[in-house]
Write a protein that binds this DNA or RNA. Structure first.
Length: 470
RNA sequence: GCUCCCAUCGUCUAGCGGUCCAGGACGCGGCCCUCUCAAGGCUGAAACACGAGUUCGAUUCUCGUUGGGAGCGCCA
């Protein structure tokens, strides 16, 4: 039997980090077993589902390269099928019409709470034979009242529920539309899902779903419930700290491979290994290695992983990403240094592509002004003759390459009995506007002779102005 | 309130009765390297929630306590 997994989000918002992790595990499990990964959009709640949210989910999955093999299927396109099964259940006596009003149900719950009982429907309409005037009935599933239902969960182990805890859930609303716990079962059955991998929050729904499978004479799939992902502070994920769209991570300069690698290590481990390629993951991933406790997001570790991928990925690929980010912050890359060379210089000093783009801006645009502290410290009267000397030698340099440039900087320092920093830092501030850049020889080589000489001149003028203000 | 789940360094985790005075990673401290910032190398501090069992022996098994979380909708 071939493995079939599904990711079944409801399109009420963007794809957040928790959903992405669920999708990733479903995808990995399918890949690992040469199975099929299915995307199903659970949009039965027409009030809250939006086409924008569907698109956001599709975009997020595409960015992370979690491509479904089938789907997306939409539950709203399957209403006829659900209706037919509701009728089957009704005919077979596994479901019944319930004429209780919302007020009635509320009162029932309130009473039960007052008695410190678990609120649940008491089944009073099971025996009702006559319709009640003026009330559109819902359809309830006749849940077994005694015995136990066992969920043999792949990550949780055997979890046993007393059927007495389960009440008769509504499977079709008064307007005839089906509800979640019912549509999930029909879809998982029709789509021949073999493994349901989903968030922990569904564990309590599982026995109900199994009972519906049983009533339908179908075999339930294997279940695996994943632990929750918490915010960095250990509290539930919320918009304030991390329940952001995965697309936000792209905008912030993260690489999809870094996100995937980070996410897979939340709740899953393979010995001491931290870095996994996608190929490795599809070879190694297994449900038995998924752990059972919730885990908090650690932004520092994500940053570290992101930098790791920036440092080790193919230069051309990183360059393409960098270009996207440069354009995004308004930098025109035409006429600037080659992006791949730039990446080689910058990749060890950027945790995100966004940072890299920002710290690379000066290669494309002359800095509007110097960083005040950097200029005060480095563009001094003493620095002026040094810059002058460097410039005159650079003008005469036959080959504009890092090696010869390095020799000049070193020679000037040696001749004037200065530490290298006393020469390199003023140059750095002159060309970059600040105190941080790749090694000075590489920086100048990349920047080009024309821009370098121009910026050195400007800096020398600045030195004079500062030395003799007014 | 009821039902279910969870519990190793600050965080992510390894550990599947002796190999553990508990290993790795991020972060943090120190040292080295160094033209800046990084990267890199070396190194340090840092955890088995608590209490009973079971056992010759528990981080590992059982029960309880405490602490977290989820569910209990005509939401999904």
């Amino acid at each position: 039997m071939t493995v079939r997994t599904r990711f079944a989000p409801s399109p009420t918002g963007y794809l957040h980090i928790g959903g992405a992790r669920t999708a990733l595990f479903c995808w990995l499990y399918a890949r690992r077993h040469d199975g099929t990964f299915i995307l199903r959009i659970e949009d039965t709640d027409r009030e809250r589902s939006t086409p924008e949210a569907v698109q956001a989910i599709l975009d997020g999955m595409a960015w992370l390269e979690l491509t479904p093999d089938e789907g997306p299927y939409y539950q709203t396109e399957r209403f006829d099928r659900y209706k037919a099964v509701v009728n089957e259940l009704l005919d077979a006596g596994h479901a019944y019409h319930c004429y209780c009003t919302k007020e009635e149900l509320e009162a029932m719950r309130a009473e039960q709470m007052a008695r410190k009982e678990k609120p649940r429907y008491d089944g009073r309409c099971r025996t009702r034979t006559e319709p009640r005037a003026g009330v559109d009935p819902v359809v309830r599933f006749k849940s077994p009242q005694d015995g136990q239902t066992v969920v043999d969960d792949q990550v949780r182990g055997r979890v046993t529920f007393n059927n007495a805890e389960l009440d008769d859930l509504i499977i079709a609303r008064a307007d005839g539309t089906p509800t979640y716990n019912f549509t999930v079962v029909i879809d998982d059955m029709d789509m021949a899902i073999t493994h349901v991998i989903r968030g922990d929050d569904h564990l309590n729904n599982t026995p109900r779903q199994i009972n519906i499978f049983n009533a339908l004479g179908a075999t339930p799939p294997v279940y695996a419930h994943l632990p929750m992902i918490l915010g960095p502070d250990g509290a539930k994920l919320s918009k304030r700290h991390g329940a952001v769209s995965v697309m936000q991570y792209r905008d912030d300069g993260f690489l999809p491979d870094a996100i995937v690698n980070y996410l897979v290590r939340l709740g899953w481990a393979h010995g001491d290994q931290e870095i996994f390629s996608r190929d490795e993951l599809t070879q190694l991933f297994d449900l038995t290695d998924v752990n059972q406790s919730a885990s908090a997001i650690n932004p520092e570790k994500l940053l570290w992983l992101n930098q790791h991928y920036i440092k080790t990925m193919d230069v051309a690929e990183v360059a393409a990403e960098l270009e996207w980010h440069l354009h995004r912050i308004g930098v025109k890359t035409a006429g600037g240094p080659p992006l791949s060379t730039l990446v080689e210089c910058q990749r060890e000093r950027a945790k995100t592509l966004k940072q890299m783009a920002e710290s690379s801006r000066f290669f494309f645009e002359e800095p509007a002004e110097y960083d005040a502290r950097a200029a005060r410290k480095n563009l001094t009267a003493e620095a002026r003759p040094v810059l002058e000397e460097v410039q005159s030698r650079l003008v005469a340099l036959p080959e504009w390459r890092a090696g010869p440039i390095h020799e000049i900087v070193q020679a000037v320092a040696a001749e004037r009995d200065l530490k290298l920093g006393k020469v390199a830092q003023p140059i750095r501030v002159a060309v970059s506007g600040g105190t941080v850049s790749p090694p000075i020889d590489a920086t100048l080589a990349l920047l080009g002779r024309e821009a370098t000489l121009k910026r050195l001149s400007r800096a020398m003028e600045y030195c004079v102005a500062e030395a003799d203000p007014g």
